[in-house]
């Protein structure tokens, strides 16, 4: 890693402490060579109202999604996006954003699909930086374009598709949506009706662990012990398990993916980005309603 990790004590009990940086550390390291700060928000204009000095903006809708197919951009488009923002293959990327880092975690997960090695999250995200009164600017950094190699996206190891999930039923599956979405009372998250589905409920056998349980009030991650109590003791996830997480479009489950993969160190975790907007509208896939996980059809499992 080109830039040394943040030695902040809280991070040291996580499986991969180098995946997080604190606001105080970042403030000191903003000018480090080989480090680029990336803001990724739900609100497409938020960066323009002010951002961390030197940070570039990468938007999940307009930069990371393919404009036509429901999929991510390809290797060539990713190389162009990185190069234009002054990010080289060995650059240390620090991601932060609004809404407890949902979109920053989502971008981090997409960057990982392309095998970008050194991607880290700012613990607490944009809100914490702002709340602490740290510097913000509206000035766009002029970053020199660099060469970024064209790398094929690897969808096999950390991304799950609908067919993968069908074959996965019976193995650990985490639904990170709200309890109302899980039970099927709602087909969409409060205030997100355009991201709805035709049916309400959850994928059979999925355990409900809303994403927010991993975060403190201020948006920072809970301690390693607290996270282990939720995901290892309560949800029963072990290191030998293959795990799939999903939500509605894959952004909240990117947050949980980050927790499981990097903070708890579970080796085999995939994010199902099709999530409920696909599953809840697909024809003839099994669905369970109510508060119980239910059983996998045809197997009698759980």
């Amino acid at each position: 890693m080109p830039v040394a990790p943040d030695p902040f004590e809280k991070f040291q009990s996580y499986a991969h402490p180098e995946r997080l940086v604190s606001t105080a550390w970042l403030e000191e390291h903003l000018d480090d060579p080989g480090l680029v700060v990336v803001e990724s928000d739900e609100d497409v204009l938020l960066y323009e109202t002010g951002h961390i000095p030197g940070a570039v903006k990468i938007d999940w809708h307009t930069d990371l999604n393919d404009p036509i197919v429901r999929d991510y951009i390809d290797g060539a488009a990713f190389a162009e996006l990185m190069g234009r923002n002054g990010i080289a293959r060995d650059t240390t990327i620090i991601l932060y954003g609004d809404r407890s880092n949902w979109w920053a975690a989502y971008a981090l997960w997409v960057f990982t699909l392309f095998g970008h090695d050194d991607v880290r999250l700012l613990d607490g995200g944009r809100d914490r930086w702002v709340a602490e009164g740290r510097a913000m600017t509206t000035e766009r950094p002029a970053r020199e374009r660099v060469d970024y190699p064209v790398v094929e996206r690897d969808d096999a190891s950390i991304r799950a598709f609908k067919e993968d999930v069908l074959a996965h039923l019976g193995k650990p599956l985490i639904d990170v949506r709200s309890p109302e979405e899980y039970s099927g009372e709602r087909t969409h998250m409060p205030a997100y009706p355009e991201e709805g589905a035709l049916r309400g409920g959850h994928i059979p056998t999925a355990r409900s662990v809303p994403w927010a349980r991993a975060a403190n009030e201020d948006g920072t991650f809970r301690t390693a012990d607290e996270l282990a109590a939720i995901y290892r003791d309560e949800a029963g996830i072990g290191d030998a398990d293959e795990v799939v997480a999903y939500c509605r479009i894959g952004e909240r489950s990117s947050h949980t993916w980050f927790v499981l993969r990097h903070l708890l160190g579970v080796p085999n975790v995939r994010n199902y980005d099709g999530s409920w907007t696909e599953w809840g509208s697909a024809v003839r896939v099994p669905i369970v309603t109510g508060a119980e996980p239910g059983t996998a059809p045809g197997t009698g499992a759980r």
Binding site: D43, V44, L45, L46, E48, T49, D98
Partner: peptide, 9 residues
């Protein structure tokens, strides 16, 4: 709210 500039726009 100011944290939702797109919606405000």
């Amino acid at each position: 709210p100011p944290e939702a500039p797109t919606t405000r726009g």
